[in-house]
Design a protein around this nucleic acid. Sequence first.
DNA 1: CAAATTTGCCTAAAGTCTTTAGGCATCTGC
DNA 2: GCAGATGCCTAAAGACTTTAGGCAAATTTG
Lengths: 197, 197
Amino acid sequence: MVRVGLTTERLAQAGAELADEVGFEQVTVSELARRFDVKVASLYSHVKNSQDLKTKIALLALEELADRGAAALAGRAGKDALTAFANVYRDYAREHPGRYAAAQLRLTPEEAAASAGGRHAQMTRAILRGYDLTEPDQTHAVRLLGSVFHGYVSLELGGGFSHSSPDSQETWSRVLDALDALLRNWPAQSAQSAQSA
Amino acid sequence: MVRVGLTTERLAQAGAELADEVGFEQVTVSELARRFDVKVASLYSHVKNSQDLKTKIALLALEELADRGAAALAGRAGKDALTAFANVYRDYAREHPGRYAAAQLRLTPEEAAASAGGRHAQMTRAILRGYDLTEPDQTHAVRLLGSVFHGYVSLELGGGFSHSSPDSQETWSRVLDALDALLRNWPAQSAQSAQSA
DNA sequence: CAAATTTGCCTAAAGTCTTTAGGCATCTGC
DNA sequence: GCAGATGCCTAAAGACTTTAGGCAAATTTG
């Protein structure tokens, strides 16, 4: 009975690799046990259940993504920062599709609070320092950027932009141009949206 | 042995309702059988397997969404069309979260071709008729709109915008204002993105 | 209208994954 | 080196998936 040295962290790490290989949906406690050449029940000392394992993979991915974002943002401002940060998301999703899917897992409020989610929001807000936005427009813009990054990457990963021209890279560049232009020239509230608000 | 009259369509329909109630991930052939008060194996005459069931729910959702989009677009143009179409996505996701999740299922190229996906793209392109964009900018804009709609709705559904001010409705209105402004004033390709392309 | 055929739902069974309970061997600290 | 804690094990039950083969109800046909 040789001990292989399971820990929660190693399981999350191996789970993340598994997710990238077979897809986050296909990550299973059983498959993970197989990879460690260990019986399934053994994992339950380190992980509460299957959901818990998935949550830990999600938290890992959020941390990695936040670390990369912070590195990309260091010493950059304005459009340069915007582009670098956006590319972090896109590149991460392409390199680690399973982890990226994991990062999309719906967390409970407590898990979310303990996650790197706050860092992500802070970093997005930091990008906006290079533009001239005050509250509440800044928050609107943070949410817009999050939506575009996530939405684009997620559609691209789903194959939405393949097999059609122009290629996805070109659109991505132009979308970032467009966002930069929009942030430099953020429109005042329209009469229409004023009545609905 | 009373026959309850199972058909593929009724299964997809009931599956869609189940998805809205318990979440798309939790949709299971077994649970569906229970709801029809029928043995599990009986469903396998109407549906190839679990994946096939999910695909059929996804196709149903895509059709419904396209139908609503078409209705919303009729007789509208410009920002009016943009807003109406965007609200279709958001409202559908809020009314039918399970179906909306289903619509995000990754389809095979054949399934995708047979889906309402093409209608969605056509309708988004129709919105842009109210703005002065020529190819390839039109395609870039189609992809941007898809990204924002999907990204926003998906983050909102995940609870990303709750418990913080301003409320999500206000941001949504301002995001649509911003997109309208952007489309009316689409930026030329920047020097930066020109070199990368 | 009855016989023949098709169709729909059934029973049975095997495989996989999840999760809990309890046991023994291996480490750790004194 | 011993006592206790820890780590991985066996065993077992419950749920979902999927296939194979059967009987009865519906439909087609003469």
